[in-house]
Computed example of a mutant assay.
Amino acid sequence: MEKHADTNDVTTTIIKPIIPLPPSKFPLSFFEATVASTVALGFIIGLLGVYLTMPDSDYSFLKLPRTLHDLQLLRDNLESYTSDYTAQVLVGYCLVYIFMQTFMIPGTVFMSLLAGALFGVFKGVALVVFTATAGASSCFFLSKFIGRPLLFSLWPDKLKFFQTQVAKRRKSLLNYMLFLRLTPTLPNTFINFASPIVDVPYHIFFLGTVIGLIPAAYVTVRAGLALGELQSVGDLYDFNSIATLFFIGIISVTPTLMGKKDS
């Protein structure tokens, strides 16, 4: 008599392996480099258009802030333009923030602080969540074209870990993405770039980003109101802020953990 395996009570997580590309000196092909260059050129043209609509003045203060001193100088100079040239300042801010997110340029925390200093808490949080989500989405779609070779060159082990975790939590993926956004388990820049490679659906990525960024955006934007009192970026997150973010993150991932326990 022929035997048949009973698979009714067996749940198997199938992880589709990500096949690495052959190593090369420069990880991007000509087409991929052209796509990235075209996107960067689009941002540059947009920023040039904003610059040309501003009044003649000394804009030597316009640079990406790398320290709190740079940020305070930028805030002091932009305050005089924000009321009279609100549209230009907003468009310029959005383009810079989205550009930084798209190409994983560090320093967006300074841009979040600047939003609070220039626009207040409510408008600042709305602006940061919008630009951060738009930038993360831009990075997500750009990664579809150029992400795979860069990820295998830069973070092969981290990519494998992320793929495994996503595959295990496929049924509660939104909760897992919320957990990642709320806690420093993986860098946000890596999540943005790696999500399409490990088959995170965009609607899950989008919802996890929009909702998950709100608490941290609020903490950072609120700190921007007292920019002159900050001594370092580390002052942004006191024990209560970090504990709150972790608590929210644990709550978001609880359904995933309970599902594992019941299965």
Rank of each mutant, 00 (worst) to 15 (best):
S143E: 00
F122K: 13
L64P: 07
L52Q: 15
I44R: 00
I250W: 11
F122W: 14
Y51K: 15
Q163R: 01
A217S: 15
P17I: 05
S80A: 14
L151P: 02
D199S: 12
L173R: 01
V89L: 02
L64Y: 10
S24F: 06
T209R: 03
I19N: 05
G249W: 00
P106N: 09
S232C: 13
N192I: 08
L207H: 01
T220A: 12
K261N: 12
F179M: 12
T53W: 11
E32W: 05
A115T: 02
F247E: 02
P17A: 03
K16Q: 14
T189C: 13
P22S: 08
G92A: 11
M258W: 09
R66M: 12
A136T: 09
S241L: 01
L207K: 01
G42I: 10
A217R: 09
I204M: 05
Q163S: 12
V35C: 14
A115H: 03
G120L: 05
K260C: 08
V219A: 11
R170L: 10
A117F: 02
V233E: 09
A115R: 04
H4Q: 11
M258K: 11
R170N: 10
A5V: 12
R75K: 15
M258D: 10
G259W: 00
D56Q: 13
F246D: 02
F247S: 15
F152M: 01
L180G: 03
Y237I: 15
L173K: 08
D56L: 12
I211N: 04
A243C: 10
L78F: 10
S112P: 07
S153R: 14
A243L: 14
R75F: 02
F206K: 00
Q88H: 00
S60C: 05
L230K: 10
T183E: 12
P156Q: 08
I197K: 06
I204P: 04
T13G: 08
Q88W: 11
V219I: 15
Y218K: 02
D199K: 13
P201G: 10
P149F: 03
R181S: 13
L236H: 13
R181A: 15
L173M: 13
F31L: 15
E79A: 13
G224M: 12
E2T: 07
L118M: 06
Q165S: 13
D84S: 15
L150E: 07
I251N: 08
G135A: 01
T67E: 08
I19G: 04
S241P: 04
T67F: 07
S143P: 02
F99N: 06
F30W: 13
E2D: 08
L73Q: 14
L90C: 08
N175K: 09
H4P: 06
I45C: 10
T102G: 03
S57F: 07
V50F: 02
R181E: 00
A33R: 10
K171H: 13
F205Y: 14
N240G: 11
V125N: 07
P156N: 09
P255Q: 03
F141P: 05
T209F: 05
D84N: 15
G107A: 04
A223H: 11
Y218R: 04
Y97D: 07
